[in-house]
Design a protein around this nucleic acid. Structure first.
Length: 267
DNA sequence: CGGCATGTTGCGCA
DNA sequence: TTGCGCAACATGCC
C-alpha cells in the first residue's frame, strides 16, 4: 500500500522499534528483493550494528547504522514492515527479518512483500535512487515556484509530472489522482499550459490529499486498507462534490479517475 | 477466465 | 538526443 503516507507510517513504526537498538540477527534469502547483493552480505552489514535512525524520503526508507553503513528499503507495490514476537515463525510472504536488542528487550521486525516488487539495498553511501529524489512534500513542503517551473518544461500531462519522483518525492497514483480532483484540474492537462493560479491549486490539492491520508493512516488501528478516496478507484461512482459519474482513463499506463464536470478538459 | 492493482525499469520507436 | 508509450516484473483479488 505504499505511497508517501504509508511509508511514513512504516518509518515511524520501524524507528520506534529499531532506533538505539543493536541488531542481533538479520536475514533475507530473497534474491529479487535483495538487489543488488547476496543474502550473506545483508546479515554481515547489519548484525552487531546499532541503528541510529530510520529516515524517509519519498517512498524510500533509510536505516542508518552505527558504523556508517546504510540499509535502503523501497516497498514497491505490496511491501510492508510489521513487528512480530522474536520467536514468531515466518509467514508466507515474509522476505526479510531484523532482530534487535535494547537493554534486556528483544524485538523483531519482518519485511512482508507478496508481489516482491520491493527492494533492500545495503550500501556505504546514499544510493543514486535516493540522491535523485526531489523534495519530500511532507518534510520539505512544496515550493510553488519550482513546481511551476518544472511543469512549464513540457506538455506532458500534469499528473505524470506530479508522479515524477525527481519533481516531488513520494507522490504516487493515488495522491496525484486525489490532488488533481481537489485542484479541479483535468489530469491530462499539459503542464506548460497551467496558469500560476492553477499551479497554486495543484500544490494546495497535494497538501489537502496528503494531510487527509496522513490523518487516516495515523488513526487507523493497523495496516488495513481503507478506501477514503474521493475519486481514486471510484470509476462510475458519483463525484462527492457534484454527483457526476467519475470517469476513468489510462495515462502512461496508469488508471486515472476524475470528474468530467469538476475537472473539465480544456481547449 | 479476464481485468485490474498503491511502483520502477528498460526497451523500442518517433 | 529526448521523450513517450508500453511491457515486464510476481502475485492476489474481484
Amino acid at each position: 500500500m505504499p505511497e508517501l503516507p504509508d511509508v511514513e507510517v512504516v518509518r515511524l513504526r520501524l524507528d520506534g522499534v529499531l532506533r538505539g537498538a543493536t541488531v542481533t540477527a538479520a536475514a533475507s534469502k530473497d534474491r529479487r528483493i535483495l538487489r543488488p547483493g547476496a543474502p550473506a552480505g545483508f546479515g554481515r552489514a547489519l548484525v552487531g550494528r546499532k541503528v541510529s535512525e530510520v529516515a524517509r524520503r519519498g517512498k524510500w526508507l533509510r536505516l542508518a547504522l552505527g558504523d556508517g553503513g546504510r540499509l535502503f528499503c523501497h516497498l514497491g507495490m505490496t511491501g510492508w514492515w510489521v513487528e512480530r514476537e522474536p520467536e514468531a515463525a515466518a509467514e508466507r510472504t515474509e522476505r526479510a527479518r531484523i532482530d534487535v536488542r535494547r537493554g534486556r528487550a528483544r524485538r523483531s521486525v519482518r519485511y512482508l512483500d507478496g508481489r516482491r516488487f520491493g527492494r533492500l539495498v545495503v550500501a556505504r553511501d546514499d544510493i543514486p535512487e535516493w540522491r535523485a529524489l526531489g523534495p519530500d512534500p511532507l518534510a520539505d513542503g512544496i515550493d510553488v515556484d519550482r513546481l511551476a517551473e518544472l511543469l512549464a518544461r513540457s506538455r506532458r500531462p500534469v499528473k505524470d509530472t506530479l508522479m515524477d519522483q525527481g519533481v516531488l518525492a513520494g507522490i504516487g497514483n493515488i495522491l496525484a489522482t486525489e490532488a488533481l480532483w481537489h485542484a479541479r484540474l483535468d489530469p491530462r492537462t499539459p503542464g506548460k499550459t497551467l496558469s500560476h493560479a492553477e499551479v497554486v491549486r495543484v500544490a494546495r490539492g497535494l497538501g489537502t490529499a496528503l494531510r487527509h491520508e496522513m490523518k487516516v493512516r495515523l488513526g487507523a488501528k493497523d495496516d488495513e486498507w481503507r478506501d477514503v478516496f474521493a475519486v481514486y478507484g471510484h470509476a462510475g461512482a458519483p463525484c462527492p462534490r457534484c454527483r457526476t459519474p467519475i470517469e476513468r482513463v489510462v495515462l502512461s499506463g496508469r488508471g486515472t479517475t476524475f470528474c468530467p464536470t469538476c475537472q473539465p478538459e480544456r481547449a
